[in-house]
């Protein structure tokens, strides 16, 4: 599993676009929002957590279909499936690689982009923490969606349709925790609930992902 993780990270770095593309997309969405809603500082600072969360979600979505598609096309996936690695472990390693290349940089960059949206003091910390806790769930759910659509010729659009509804709870708890934290309310409860979702996803979804992969490799 470690070998697979290292290989995927190496590929993401060398192929280019692994780290950079998602971040650039994130930046563009955040820059576009003020053009859409107007430059009032109060409005922007109020909607900033929501914008950052939705933008992070879309940026994470962007690279999902590459998780398994590349390995499927060049035949590496069936070879991995017949290797001693359990498919569940492969799913987990793939999700982890996706998180390191998208979720983690997004979480780190989000507070910086918060400046553009006039975010207020305590919100920065909440933003970073909720993204760190929530993005692993996004990667894991996305990996499951990618496994469902891996053999399909035009799976990209379908993948979004399948995955986005599954993102709803993570998004709600994440944005809610930031909002409550920013208003000085109790943001820990939604944060813990979000952590619960992430833990549940990481514990259970690899099995569903492996089941979907087995079907698609037949």
């Amino acid at each position: 599993m470690k070998a697979l993780l290292i290989r995927d990270l190496r590929l993401a770095v060398r192929a280019g676009g692994g780290f950079g593309l998602g971040l650039a997309f994130f930046l563009i969405v955040v820059v576009l929002v003020p053009f859409g809603v107007g430059p009032e500082r109060e409005v922007l600072s109020r909607i900033a957590p929501g914008i950052l969360w939705v933008a992070a979600l879309l940026a994470a979505l962007l690279s999902l279909d590459r998780i398994f598609a590349l390995d499927f096309e060049d035949g590496a996936l069936p070879l991995l499936a017949t290797s001693p690695l359990p498919l569940e472990g492969i799913a987990l390693a793939k999700a982890l690689a996706h998180w390191i290349t998208t979720g983690l940089p997004l979480a780190v960059v989000a507070p910086v982009l918060g400046i553009l949206l006039n975010m207020e003091g305590p919100t920065y910390g909440w933003m970073l923490v909720t993204l760190l806790v929530g993005t692993p769930a996004l990667s894991m759910i996305g990996t499951f969606g990618a496994a469902l659509t891996v053999g399909l010729r035009r799976g990209g659009l379908l993948l979004s349709l399948l995955v986005l509804p599954l993102y709803v709870p993570t998004l709600i708890f994440g944005a809610e925790a930031v909002r409550r934290g920013a208003e000085g309310l109790d943001g820990v409860t939604p944060l813990l609930l979000q952590g619960g979702i992430t833990a549940g996803c990481v514990a259970l979804l690899p099995f569903a992902t492996a089941a979907a992969l087995r079907v698609n490799l037949r």
Binding site: K2, A3, R7, D71, G75, A76, L79, S83, P84, L85
Partner: peptide, 26 residues
Amino acid sequence: AYASHADGIKAQLTVTENLAFWAEVH
């Protein structure tokens, strides 16, 4: 071990890295 013309070789890895990956997986 099954092998066909689609052999999972990654263009962005060196020859040694490709082989080392499959060796470590096994």
